[in-house]
Design a protein around this nucleic acid. Structure first.
Lengths: 312, 312
DNA sequence: CAACGTTACGCTCTTCGTAAAGATG
DNA sequence: CATCTTTACGAAGAGCGTAACGTTG
């Protein structure tokens, strides 16, 4: 059995059982991939892939398990390489962050700036997606850390660290009747067309839950994943915007008025997630600490130790 | 990076940094191992082993991490092979049990007999050791399951399933004064020379704890890991034997009298341990169920799911 | 000087890429 | 007939074993 074979298997599974595109992705020849997979299946003594004649049509039951194990092996091989990088090229490498739009746009800039100053030789990638995509990317090892609200703890092999709590505000054009009508309630809010986050995005489901538990039906006329989009439509007079506190900037958004509604909704917690079995580079600990100061290197290791089987 | 290199690294570490004996154990040439380790270190960009000139004298700090990861990789490679075996040669293979003498001698025979009838093509190995050796063998993957009392749950990556509870009895030659003196107490027991298990073995530490909590000092004149040895010395009149209930067989041990002392000591629980990240062959589930009937395949998988990161 | 690790070298087996052939839908 | 996989073959390369050399204690 060769590592190459496991790598090939993985990539074929990734590429929807298309050997040709797997070969392309691996920068090698297609017959080579085909051959190694045959050799692997011969050595193991069973088929990983179901075939209809020559086409791959599916994955066998044992194949599923083998692919899952192969993915773990490849991940640990990556970890081994990282150990090398960590100890030789101190503080150079890549940090891939998966996060939602809200975090990327309003919370991360300050953190990223501090990070880039502290680790100028680390290349940064930011992947954007909804919370479950964020979690999935981290779980698969496509991202080193994920930052999102809710959902992220669904995956068994992720360690979730609470970073900070936040709440919501309402934005309206200046002179809007809501501004004149005393303290805001869910009922008053529901009287106006509402523009807010997609459910399934940053704290979206918590909002709908709060409304429904209060027996109030909000009139959501438009949803977006993007606070800037929401503000744009509010500016056009299409409705009242409900978004994260941190997404309102008094200077930049001077054409809108803001009303805090923390008293109407429970706080949402933003979590940072890492794979329990990942080898964390020094600068990754650094990033985590910038994001959630109480989680220094020691605290993260402690959390990893408690949570998982990971016996690094 | 090659799997072979990881295998070599592992074996060298196992053989106390002796490349020559590692090569022997791997049935290959010594220069080959030497070369591959050099190539690996070159590729990774750091040394795994500390050298004094040409001798290996230790493991570097990153080396420790790499070796740990390499061990995991090799274990998962074994798992992959097992998947193959499981689905092709149904119910043939090997089951290695690590356990203490008491279990092997008094509890396992019935289970093993049933197992061999159910899975006649599975080869059985029984490794004997003290409870911490048992746990270590399972943790390292040298044994598939471990059976012992206490201690076994110290390892992070072991799943422990409670099998059954048991308690102790006292054995003495017929006509011994203890038999005439009414209900037994710790004090009365302490008045006679005591022969019992090594502390650190089957429930031994629980016995000493019970005595010390009662403020009683037992007069332990001889300890052994082996109930048969204990009984032999009791027969010779050297003292009173304190051993596991199940170790007294009224027929075979007709030359000794037995007094139950369950009321003096708390029950001990015997656990069965498996690695959380092991791929369990069908017959291994079978063995576990024979040993602890409430843990059928489904229950074991459930326990694995709850306990670990293991996302098979 | 005995035990151990590294270097040197030649052989063999593997792997990889190109080209061609065979299947599938 | 376009797409995809397998087979065939030759060249390049990697791994292994023997033998010789260099070090360590």
């Amino acid at each position: 059995m060769k590592l190459q074979q496991l790598r090939y298997l993985n990539e074929v599974a990734r590429q929807d059982l298309n050997i040709t595109s797997a070969a392309d992705a691996l920068y090698t020849s297609q017959p080579g991939v085909s051959k190694q997979i045959q050799l692997f299946e011969e050595e193991i003594g069973l088929q990983v892939f179901l075939r209809n004649g020559k086409r791959l049509t599916g994955i066998t039951e044992p194949g599923e398990q083998i692919l899952s194990l192969a993915a773990k092996v490849m991940h640990q091989i990556d970890n081994i390489k990282r150990v090398g990088d960590e100890f030789s090229n101190i503080e150079t490498g890549t940090l891939t962050i998966a996060t939602t739009h809200t975090q990327a746009r309003y919370k991360l800039p300050a953190v990223v700036k501090a990070f880039m100053t502290a680790y100028p030789h680390v290349k940064l990638n930011i992947h954007q997606g909804n919370p479950s995509q964020v979690a999935e990317q981290v779980a698969k090892g496509d991202a080193d850390v994920g930052i999102a609200t809710e959902y992220i703890s669904d995956f068994e092999n992720l360690l979730c660290l609470p970073c900070y709590e936040w709440n919501r505000c309402v934005v309206v054009p200046h002179g809007h009747p809501l501004l004149l009508d005393g303290a805001l309630t869910l009922e008053k809010l529901a009287a106006y067309p509402l523009i807010t986050y997609d459910f399934g995005y940053t704290g979206g489901s918590l909002v709908s839950k709060t409304f429904s538990e209060a027996g109030v039906s909000p009139n959501v006329v438009l949803t977006a994943i993007d606070a800037d989009v929401i503000k744009t439509y509010v500016t056009l007079g299409l409705g009242v915007g409900l978004l994260a506190n941190m997404a309102y900037d008094p200077e930049r958004d001077s054409n809108l008025a803001m009303v805090d509604v923390s008293h109407l909704f429970p706080n949402s917690t933003t979590y940072l997630g890492v794979r329990k079995d990942a080898f964390l580079r020094g600068y990754m600990y650094g990033f985590i600490e910038l994001m959630a100061p109480k989680f220094n290197r020691k605290a993260v290791n402690e959390a990893l130790k408690i949570s998982g089987t990971s016996s690094l």
